[in-house]
């Protein structure tokens, strides 16, 4: 754990549900509930889960875009969980965000060059104008864009190119980690792979660059990540190396998730066992008692509705939160 760039311990983010003029709190949405993980330098950690599982909130909590309800966020050895807003700014720059929607994540009135250059200027990362220009042009080349296109505005670019601009902007901050929040799900299939390859290339080129890769598509997450954390209703249910996750998924939810993802290969598809889950994801406003997954779980036992299983290491750094899994 010494080489961990980011350590998240027992992170909780509850959003109050209020009603009336006085904003009386009537309930709480436990968007993120007791989440712990770490990201090592140069590593990619995938965070995967379905809509409303709290993966995006987790990402934004780490950036302290929200004030966490409880827990600790330690980034580069510094506890930033409750740091004052004015101090957090210089730290945020070290872990910028990349967004899902390449259309709303770029200011439509800025030129591509100034979008990429803005963080450099704001944080004073270069000393003179010439250096600034070179740096921006370098960033453009790094993400596979022609520096000649610097003066164009976002709507003159395609979705994939916009996403490249977003990546260049994130790199401009000289980050140690990039939080990628569904960076490819809004793109066309043929463009997605270009962006995935770009992210992988950048990791090879920028030493020690880590990604927190948040997505709903397990096959993409597995492809790009070293380790994967599977979230369900605000909690991590399984965390392991991406290879093990497919070869030996332990949590019943992970198993169902894997079986639900079609593989574009007829021969493989014919022989796969499919687990069709019952019902739907319950509301995070009112999660089931015990293990949150038990009402839909194909292997649930009566105890599952009583005990909320903690995430435990079952050996070989494979963590899982299920009482049915033998250690």
């Amino acid at each position: 754990m010494d080489d961990a760039l980011l350590i998240v311990k027992g992170l909780k983010m509850y959003f109050p549900v209020t009603r009336g003029l006085l904003r009386r709190k009537i309930a709480e949405v436990k968007a993120v509930d007791n989440v712990s993980f770490d990201v090592k330098a140069g590593e990619t950690l995938g965070l995967v889960g379905e809509t409303g599982c709290g993966k995006t909130t987790t990402g934004r909590c780490i950036l302290r875009l929200y004030r966490p309800t409880a827990g600790q966020i330690i980034f580069e050895g510094l506890d930033i969980s409750y740091l004052h807003e004015s101090k957090i700014r210089s730290i945020r720059r070290k872990m910028p965000l990349i967004f899902q929607d390449p259309y709303s994540s770029l200011d439509p009135r800025q030129s591509a060059g100034s979008i990429v250059g803005e963080p450099i200027k704001f944080h004073g990362l270069v000393s003179n104008k010439k250096e600034y220009k070179e740096r921006v042009a370098d960033l453009f080349r790094m993400v596979g864009l022609n520096p000649d296109m610097m003066n164009r505005v976002p709507h003159e670019f395609s979705g994939g190119q916009r996403q490249r601009i977003g990546i260049a902007r994130a790199l401009a901050c000289e980050p140690s980690m990039i939080v990628c929040d569904e960076p490819i799900s809004a793109l066309d299939v043929s463009i997605q792979s270009q962006i995935i390859n770009l992210l992988e290339e950048l990791q090879d080129r920028v030493e020690g660059l880590s990604y927190l890769f948040i997505a709903h598509d397990l096959s993409v997450v597995r492809h790009i990540s070293n380790r994967v954390a599977v979230m369900y209703l605000g909690r991590i249910v399984e965390l392991t190396e991406s290879k093990k996750l497919y070869d030996n998924p332990l949590h019943p939810y992970t198993q169902a998730l894997i079986s639900a993802i079609p593989i574009p290969d007829r021969a493989v598809e014919k022989h796969r066992k499919q687990i069709i889950l019952r019902g739907e994801v319950p509301s995070p406003l009112n999660p089931p008692d015990g293990c949150h997954f038990h009402p839909r779980c194909p292997v649930a036992i009566p105890d599952c509705s009583q005990i909320l299983p903690p995430l435990v290491d079952v050996g070989d750094s494979h963590q899982v939160a299920c009482i049915r899994v033998k250690h």
Binding site: R60, I91, R92, D101, S104, D107, R109, E118, P119, F122
Partner: peptide, 26 residues
């Protein structure tokens, strides 16, 4: 509500910077 404002925050920009450089022009 646009992502570019959240992006700006995630890049460490101040509120005034975001207001004058991103909200007013738009």
């Amino acid at each position: 509500e646009n992502d570019y404002i959240i992006a700006g925050r995630s890049l460490g920009f101040t509120n005034w910077h975001l207001m004058w450089n991103h909200i007013v022009p738009n």
